[in-house]
Design a protein around this nucleic acid. Structure first.
Lengths: 152, 152
DNA sequence: TATTGTTATACTCTATAACTATA
DNA sequence: TATAGTTATAGAGTATAACAATA
């Protein structure tokens, strides 16, 4: 069976984003599989790397998951020896850090994704890749506003 | 705790897409909640509407899920009276169609999302919204290639 | 009282594998 | 043999609710 998308879907932003990320997400998943890591977990690793000493709850907020889910993610990354829990700012909280091994692995993961990004950029016209990144960032900055409006 | 993203993440396409769709997806979820529908299920409804008489397996492929998952989605939409299974091109397959009720509801859902898209477009400069849509579409067209490369 | 981490439990979405009825 | 639908089962990923330790 052949399949059409229909003109309406082509102009619905959420739908286009969803389908694009689906394709993109699959390729990132494949690229990161040799590291035993998913795109979501790499996001956690990058956030820990760029915010050394952060606690689990804060990490969870940045990933849009709750404390309980954040803990599972940290558990997995700790089991893989990529992240470690050090004593935190008080006796309740942990300070998250990449291990030495984690730092090296993250560097390799990012290199892999950058190589993929270069291939994707090659499929676009010069400058379009940067334009896309800029528009996505702009979109994100506006996001909190729509969420409030949607909740009204 | 405050949190930083780090310059590396800002330029990783997949990460930016993921975070943008996270914000966007939440607002779509909130907007569609009164209809008892998720963004993913609306995608299924739109595909059925634009491809009346399609079968479940083909719908599943378009949504990137397998037969089994496609069936669950169709079951849910059928239970809600939005989609119906009619006799298909042979005795094995069903022909999927929106019900009359489904057609009206989908129209209302799309109107709701269009209103939200207009608010989002207002947060961008004139033309940027269309540019974003065009770049996402271009990205999707290139996607099959990266998937092959990633699998190599 | 509020917060951090933790645990137990449940729900959603998806996949795999096996079965059936057609083709 | 292959295909469409179906079913049972299992695995992620996430959420809620409750608890302990600490603030």
């Amino acid at each position: 069976m052949s399949f059409e998308e229909g003109p309406e879907m082509a102009t619905l932003l959420g739908y286009q984003m969803q389908m694009a990320i689906l394709a993109l997400g699959d390729s990132a998943r494949i690229a990161l599989a040799p590291f035993g890591i998913t795109p979501a977990r790499l996001a956690a690793l990058l956030l820990v790397r760029d915010n050394p000493g952060c606690d689990q709850t804060t990490l969870g907020r940045a990933l849009s998951v709750n404390r309980s889910s954040a803990m599972k993610i940290v558990n997995l990354l700790a089991d893989q020896g990529l992240v470690e829990r050090r004593p935190g700012r008080d006796l309740r909280s942990h300070a998250l850090h990449l291990t030495e091994h984690g730092t090296a692995r993250v560097r390799a993961m990012v290199d892999t994704l950058r190589a993929r990004d270069r291939r994707i950029a090659a499929a676009l016209d010069p400058g379009e890749f940067d334009t896309l990144l800029a528009l996505l960032a702009k979109l994100r900055r506006g996001a909190p506003r729509w969420l409030e409006e949607a909740a009204e």
